[in-house]
Amino acid sequence: MLPNEGPKERLRDHVPRYAVGLVAGFASGLTKVAVGHGFDTVKTRVQLHPVLKNHSAVHVLMTTIKREGFLALYKGAMAPSVGWAAIDSVLLGSLHTYRLFLLHNGMTEDPTSTGPRLTLLAHGTAGLFAGLTSAPLATPIELLKVRLQLQMQKSVSDRQFKGPIDCAQHIVRSQGVFSLWTGFSGGLFFRANFFYMFLAFEACMRGLSTLKGTPYEPNVGIANLIAGGAASLCFWTMAIPFDRTKNQMMSHPYPQPYPDCSITRPSLVSVARQIYKAEGPSGFYRGLGPCYLRAFPSNACAFFVYEGLLRALGAEQTRR
C-alpha cells in the first residue's frame, strides 16, 4: 500500500470494476429492510387481511403492536434481510450495467461542457430492464415474506409456518418447486415500474443541481437522500395496483390455511377481476398510505448508501 493511499483507493483496489454495482446494491438492500420492513408488514395486512383491511394503517399498526408486540412488525424479515440484499444487488448491479451499455451506445445528450450524459429516457429504460432482470429472484422471496407477514399468531408454535425455510418446504412439498414463483407475472408488471423510479431520481438530481452556487445548494449525499425519497413516491404511485395484485396472487388461498394438497394458482387477470369486482378501482390502491410512509425514509437511505458506495468504489460514472 502506498503511503498516501486512502480508504477509497483501498476499496477500489479490492472490488472489480464490473462488480461495484452488485456490492453497492447489496448494501442498499440491507439498508432498505432495516428502515422499512415494519411499514411493509402494515401495508401487506391493510391490503390482504380480511378484517384489518377495512381499517386505517394507524389502526393496523397499533393493533399489531398491541396483540403481537413490536417485533411482529418484522415478521418475515429474515427472508428479505438476506433476500432483499440479493435482490437489490441484482437490481442495482444490472442497473449500473444497463446504464453503461446505453452510455456507450449513444443514448446520450451533451447539454454542457462536462461531456455526454444519459438522457432521462435512458435512465428510465435502464430501470425498466433492471426491474425485469431482478423479478425471477424477487418473486420467491416476496412470496415467503407475504405468507409470513399474514400470520397473526403471537406464538411461533401456533403459526402454520415457523419461518421462511419451513414455509418454503411446506410450499414445495404440497405444490412443487415452481409454486415458489406464484405471482411471477404480477411481479413483472410491478417491477417494470422501476422505469419511473430511476427516471424520477435522475430528474430530481438534475433539478437539485440547479441550486449550485446558491445558499440552498445541497451536498451530494443530501441530494441523494432527497432525490431517492422523492423517486420512491413516484414509483409507488405508479406501481401500487400491480403490488396489490401480485400480493393477492402470492397469498392465495389466504385467509384459508395453505393446503397440503395441490391447488390451482390464480392468474393475474383473474385476481385483478376479483379485486375490481369486490372493491372497485380503489381496491388497487389499498395500502398506498403505508407505502408512502415507508418509501421516503427507506429508499432515501438506500439511494444514499448505493450512490455513496458507487463513488467510494470508483464506479464508471453514468450520471453527471
Rank of each mutant, 00 (worst) to 15 (best):
M1A: 14
P3R: 07
P3K: 11
E5V: 06
G6M: 00
R10T: 08
D13K: 15
D13W: 03
H14R: 15
R17H: 10
V20W: 00
A24N: 04
A24I: 01
A24D: 00
A24W: 03
A24F: 05
G25V: 04
F26W: 06
S28A: 15
G29W: 06
L30I: 11
H37N: 13
T41H: 14
K43C: 10
T44R: 10
R45D: 09
R45E: 11
V51R: 15
V51P: 09
V51G: 13
N54C: 04
H55M: 12
A57E: 10
A57V: 05
H59I: 07
T64Q: 10
I65Q: 06
I65C: 09
F70Q: 12
F70C: 11
L71C: 11
A77V: 13
P80G: 02
S81P: 04
V82H: 07
L91A: 01
L103V: 08
M107N: 06
T108G: 03
E109Q: 08
P111K: 01
P116V: 07
L121W: 06
A122E: 00
H123I: 02
G124S: 02
T125K: 09
A126I: 02
A126M: 03
L128M: 03
G131W: 01
G131M: 02
T133L: 01
S134L: 06
P136C: 04
L143G: 08
V146S: 04
V146G: 03
R147I: 06
S155G: 08
S155L: 14
S157C: 05
F161P: 05
Q169M: 15
Q169G: 11
Q169I: 13
F178D: 14
S179H: 14
S179W: 08
W181P: 09
T182G: 12
G183V: 02
G183C: 02
F184Y: 14
S185I: 15
G186L: 01
G186K: 04
G187W: 04
F190C: 04
A192S: 12
N193W: 00
M197S: 13
E202G: 02
A203Y: 12
M205S: 15
M205G: 09
G207W: 09
L208D: 13
S209Q: 15
T210F: 12
L211H: 08
G213L: 04
Y216H: 13
N219R: 10
N219K: 12
G221R: 10
G229E: 09
S232E: 10
I240R: 08
K246Y: 10
N247V: 11
M249V: 06
P259E: 07
S262L: 15
S267H: 08
L268G: 06
S270N: 00
A272S: 12
A272G: 03
R273A: 10
A278C: 03
A278M: 09
P281F: 05
G283W: 04
Y292S: 07
Y292F: 14
A295Y: 04
P297V: 09
N299G: 07
C301M: 15
C301G: 08
C301A: 15
A302G: 08
V305F: 05
Y306P: 03
E307Y: 14
L309M: 08
L309E: 03
L310M: 01
A312N: 02
A312I: 07
G314C: 02
E316R: 11
E316W: 00
Q317N: 13
T318W: 00
R320Q: 13
